[in-house]
Write a protein that binds this DNA or RNA. Sequence first.
DNA 1: GCCATATTGTCAGTATGCTGTCAATCAGCG
DNA 2: CGCTGATTGACAGCATACTGACAATATGGC
Lengths: 171, 171
Amino acid sequence: MPNNNKPTLVTMDAVYTAPGYLFRRMQQIAVSIFVEECRAFDLTPVQYAALIAIHTHPGIDATRLSAVIAFDRSTLGNVIERLQTKGLIERKSDSDDKRVKLLTITRQGASLLREIMPVVDRAQARMLQPLKPADRKTLMALLAQLVDLNNEASRVPLRAEDALEHLGKSG
Amino acid sequence: MPNNNKPTLVTMDAVYTAPGYLFRRMQQIAVSIFVEECRAFDLTPVQYAALIAIHTHPGIDATRLSAVIAFDRSTLGNVIERLQTKGLIERKSDSDDKRVKLLTITRQGASLLREIMPVVDRAQARMLQPLKPADRKTLMALLAQLVDLNNEASRVPLRAEDALEHLGKSG
DNA sequence: GCCATATTGTCAGTATGCTGTCAATCAGCG
DNA sequence: CGCTGATTGACAGCATACTGACAATATGGC
């Protein structure tokens, strides 16, 4: 918490100890580790999450995909386009609704997913590795809790359930 | 930690429970809260950190600034330009070294800083508010520890000491 | 003083992220 | 059926971020 009882004395603690700054730093570090570990696959963290979600929810549309992984819809358009260009997913508008474009993973995408998942797991483990095992669990538990409780504070709150329900694929 | 003992069963847990995903979500939420609280000041989290650092290290150059707040040098160029356009900082190349451009905060910048700091503190507090006070401390302590231990993993490691030393302003 | 090397700021290119807008389309209501 | 309002995908514009490159400049060894 920044020390604010002396407004005229501004130190870098106002930055270094701020939660927001630590969240940003950690995000930068996490992305850096992810990209380094997965360099051979040329897949970013966002693309990975989208690919997993499309694999898990075949025939999902972009709007619902954005709710399932809590990414902005505007951003997601470009991500989808890149995944499509790489041949990892397909976009078909065979629905009754002529607006939506349904997303499915290709064989190539599923194959890449199988290969990259253990590598991603290694990257995820590396992010927490400097901490003692008990501290890793504590940190992840508190962070998961905080993210969940703050869910509505972001522009695109996570709506994990929506996808399956609206597609009528049993609850 | 993702459950990887069944490669053929891919669930969204591979995303939702991944540290990297939680770090990203938390960052999005933190920025969202910051921007919302500080809307009246038209200042982003990055611009705020840069402004604090320039205020704390008058006459710092862009490269050392990037080390002090651990932001990418390329990115920082645009940030500096925006702060300058807003009249919050000044850039002068009065050094012996014709390459460097020294940064100083303007009266207007210092004034804005005084006004925004308590608002930023409120935003920072709001990010952690859903947690119990004890849990907030635990989370911040572990995160600060993890960021510090992972410092070298990012492209621009934090070098908090560099600035003062290289400017010859006592150790 | 000269030259190999390093540093500084800048830029182009790519990839998230957000805000706001838009046309096309759909759904519901009268 | 026709109008209103909501939804969908797309886009423009701005702001981080990173990679890699570049010219100008500085520094060290000789």
